[in-house]
């Protein structure tokens, strides 16, 4: 009881302190500096109309590279922590007929919609990470509905590695053509497509396709590792 009261007191002090700090930052006021530059120049400089994905992939591409690395390390870490000699699915109850049939019908649509999200990252809300998470949801559905389902490991892990390597490769091509890593060579030197159509946005759709595939396979791998249990022989 004493501990709880102490914690509540401490939290109220921290809350008052944070609220005091935020009182100097009025809500809903225009205080963009760099943001206005991005909004003004995003169409000519990147060919994308979605400013958020342009910032994420193009202006601040290193952040995304680091983010992909963090996710890759997490997926490898989960695999390393939960590694055992013999791992199997131990679920005993198959989903009901409604669930299994519904899953069979839904999975292609969910994967199609996930691909739609990451291919149209430069035009609509979304991008590689939401699209990849949607694709992983399809595999989660399969894991939940069927007792024996497993993702095809060999293909999945290779696809993940190849997608990550291709991202770095796209950056290195930019280094060769434009002089710095992650230079947008497709838009800056070739100007393919008109702004606002699918064939535009420079290398944003290319990189988001790679990220979407990578994130989808990675999250499916994490689900696979967590759902299996060690079986003694």
């Amino acid at each position: 009881m004493m501990k709880r009261l102490l914690a509540i007191g401490l939290i109220l002090v921290i809350g008052y302190w944070l609220a005091n700090g935020l009182a100097g930052v009025p809500f809903g006021e225009d205080r963009m500096l760099v943001g206005q530059y991005y909004l003004d120049n995003v169409k000519q400089q990147t060919g994308a109309i979605n400013a958020v994905t342009a910032v994420v992939v193009n202006y601040r591409g290193f952040d995304t590279l680091g983010e992909v690395t963090v996710l890759f390390i997490a997926s490898t870490g989960v695999g390393a922590l939960l590694w055992r000699r013999k791992k199997e699915r131990t679920a005993e109850v198959e989903g009901s007929v409604v669930l299994t049939t519904g899953t069979k019908l839904l999975v292609p649509f969910v994967i199609l919609f996930g691909s739609y999200i990451f291919i149209h990252g430069h035009l609509t809300p979304g991008g590689g990470f939401p699209g990849g998470a949607t694709i992983a949801t399809a595999f989660l559905l399969l894991y939940m509905a069927f007792t024996a389902y497993e993702i095809p490991h060999k293909g999945f892990e290779k696809t993940e590695g190849v997608a990550g390597m291709s991202y770095v490769l796209v950056g290195l091509i930019g280094l060769a053509i434009g002089g710095y890593f992650l230079f947008d060579w497709i838009w800056q030197t070739w100007k393919i497509g008109t702004v606002g159509e699918l064939l535009s946005g420079g290398f944003i759709p290319v990189i988001y396709m790679l990220i979407g595939i990578k994130v989808g396979t990675e999250l499916s791998g994490i689900i696979d590792n967590m759902i299996k249990e060690g079986v003694s022989e």
Partner: peptide
Amino acid sequence: DPIPQALVLTAIVIGVATTAMALSAAIL
């Protein structure tokens, strides 16, 4: 402003990654 949205996109993914790691540690 597009910049905070881009930052949060990064932060969400990192949060998911750390949560996955912590959950597997909890299983162990």
